[in-house]
Design a protein around this nucleic acid. Structure first.
Lengths: 137, 137
DNA sequence: ATCTAACTTTAGACATAGTCTAATAAGTAT
DNA sequence: ATACTTATTAGACTATGTCTAAAGTTAGAT
């Protein structure tokens, strides 16, 4: 599969050991981009292989997040939600239904934030757009 | 106190009953703008009046958030963090120390997001700037 | 000022989310 | 293949958040 080969490369790139569990977690997030929670991922992997542990899913998510392959979605709700992060993007949260949608990446011009940012060194700016999604409109 | 009178007015404005507990929670967030967790607020209020219940703090935060007087900070960490939201603002998260800082409000020009937003109706766009804070630089 | 209906608070049981530990297994460099 | 390091596992544990039903408050109408 192309997909798997590409995912392998990402592991090499960030210097993270390739383990089946890490691959499975990342692949799950890539193939089902629905901002899954740790528990949803655990349930899915554990169904296929009952030996997969809850702790492992949390460990994998932590390591993948640390190396940037995955990120926590800044959304709502109690449980953290995750996103494969192979391509940068923003988020949209619907005022009505609360769903979180990915939005294609765009840059916020420095002229917008440079005064407000003061002496901080800014690496990137992520945007959370809020409003009404096309289904709820 | 001026402060208390102003907070009262906010309750009237959003149509939320004034209760001592709600006032205390809001006042705590206004006076100590450190993005406290529910538990930190509970500890502070409970120290002054041991009858204040954990459930009440959660109820207050939920109601204050619903009416917009308070908001959940889109930051990191397991426990939700809250902000008095009497003035809109953005957030900055330091790559190094992880602290969340408030950033003065600015508008992201529609020209930045209008293509990416598609058919969604956008009400506002909140920005999370990431980089290195002035202390860590 | 008092009454009343609707709303809010409370304590503590419960539920959900996430972390830790120490024994075992697996990845990787040589 | 070996040795060394790092990752996984089960399950106890901690932290965070929700629910319930009884008691107490609030605010508007009298």
């Amino acid at each position: 599969m192309r997909g798997a080969i590409q995912l392998d490369e990402h592991f090499d790139r960030v210097g993270l050991r390739k383990t089946p569990q890490r691959l499975d977690v990342l692949e799950h997030l890539v193939r089902r981009p629905i901002h899954a929670t740790a528990d949803e991922i655990f349930a899915a992997l554990n169904r296929r292989d009952p030996r997969v542990s809850r702790a492992t899913v949390y460990n994998c998510l932590r390591d993948l997040a640390r190396t940037g392959l995955v990120r926590e979605v800044p959304g709502e709700g109690k449980a953290a939600r995750y996103d494969a992060n192979l391509h940068r993007h923003h988020h949209f949260i619907c005022d009505v239904c609360g769903n979180v949608e990915d939005i294609e990446w765009f840059d916020v011009p420095a002229s917008s934030w440079q005064t407000a940012a003061g002496k901080r060194r800014i690496r990137e700016s992520e945007v959370v757009l809020r409003g009404v999604c096309s289904r709820c409109a």
